[in-house]
Design a protein around this nucleic acid. Sequence first.
DNA 1: TCAGGCATAGCCCCTACGTGCTATTCACAA
DNA 2: TTGTGAATAGCACGTAGGGGCTATGCCTGA
Lengths: 218, 218
Amino acid sequence: MNANIHLAVVEDNREFRRVLVNALNAHPGWRVAVECADALSALKEIPGARPDLVLLDLLLPGPSGADVIPQLKAKLPRVPIIVLTVVDSPDQIVRALEAGASGYVLKGGSTSDLLTSVEDALAGGAIMSPAVARRVVDWFQQRQSARKPVDLGLTEREWEVLRLAARGRQHGEISMALGIAVNTVKNHFRNIYEKLGVGSLTDALVKLNQGRGLLDGR
Amino acid sequence: MNANIHLAVVEDNREFRRVLVNALNAHPGWRVAVECADALSALKEIPGARPDLVLLDLLLPGPSGADVIPQLKAKLPRVPIIVLTVVDSPDQIVRALEAGASGYVLKGGSTSDLLTSVEDALAGGAIMSPAVARRVVDWFQQRQSARKPVDLGLTEREWEVLRLAARGRQHGEISMALGIAVNTVKNHFRNIYEKLGVGSLTDALVKLNQGRGLLDGR
DNA sequence: TCAGGCATAGCCCCTACGTGCTATTCACAA
DNA sequence: TTGTGAATAGCACGTAGGGGCTATGCCTGA
């Protein structure tokens, strides 16, 4: 099964690319079939070469490596992509994983660690070094805590009203559902808006989703 | 620094717990200070014992291990919790990580792998075996793709308008931002609403978030 | 006992929004 | 060439939603 594994490498730094390619070629059964220095040529050359795995740097001249992940994945859905970069922000990591990366490895680790990672990825696993995993876990926890403390003094009733509104009910329907007058519903909204410092339902929902936008990611 | 690391183990299976405790105690400098067989006693005994790390099974008689994570974390914020279980569903894994677990290890790996994991966690890293990482990555991608296929024939321009609206901009602001007339913006909305089969912005956003409710989870 | 917060409710007003209808331009495919 | 769809734009109309202002009954804590 080590027959002839073809690899693709996208990395703009010449020096580092040389080292990388040499290390990979030294591994029995592996061969670096494509080398690219930027995102555009990666998109041009990689799909045709049909490699078994892609090693991708994020910081590239021009379009970022993150941008090419979805497009590569679209053309080579079953080919694992490992991101290899110095960027260690949780957001970047999560974005890469969402885009379809199978692994995320920080530059600076040992070469043998990297080779192991590639092996794991070829075997169908996903790769996260403890440092990267730490970031992902941080992201999860911040995501969680970013949701709860949304506690800007809204009363129970106000939450009820807001939740119904967030499901698309309008004032009249809410008043029916809660068995109160429309004017009362309006009053609740009035108070909600004041507490949140906004001026419309959409604003309120945006605020509660903390600026994340209600439909980022299309 | 290996001075005297105190560990806590929560695991209902007597056999497995024995094996586990023996393996951990065999490690120089480590000592299992607390053993619990269920969630309730874990909550009672662990905070007082102030261990340096907790190994936690998810499948326990009575309350699940997942339920105790937040409470343990509240009392011992800086103590890493490693989940050690047979449960490998992405949802469970993500839930545990959100709750505050620092690592997630599947039972069935080798004991030495486990010991390495504990070391990594004590060193401040997070732990995910390739198998677990795979699940997490799957979760990310499914989360992403669960959003995309919302493709009810909206044009590029319509998405633009909608995205701005979802961030709280109103018709006038959108028209400014895009350099088009307010009437055109209204027209886009008209078409968007028709395509989505709704009658208001809120409805549209609800629809695109596929009924998930815009603020479930308060 | 009294102040203050909450839920309730009414009235008036204005405007952003949703909708019905029409029209022009451009690009692309039949 | 003609037709279809997208993007642009206008006008007119009605209403849901947001805001100013006031008021009452209830409960709780000082």
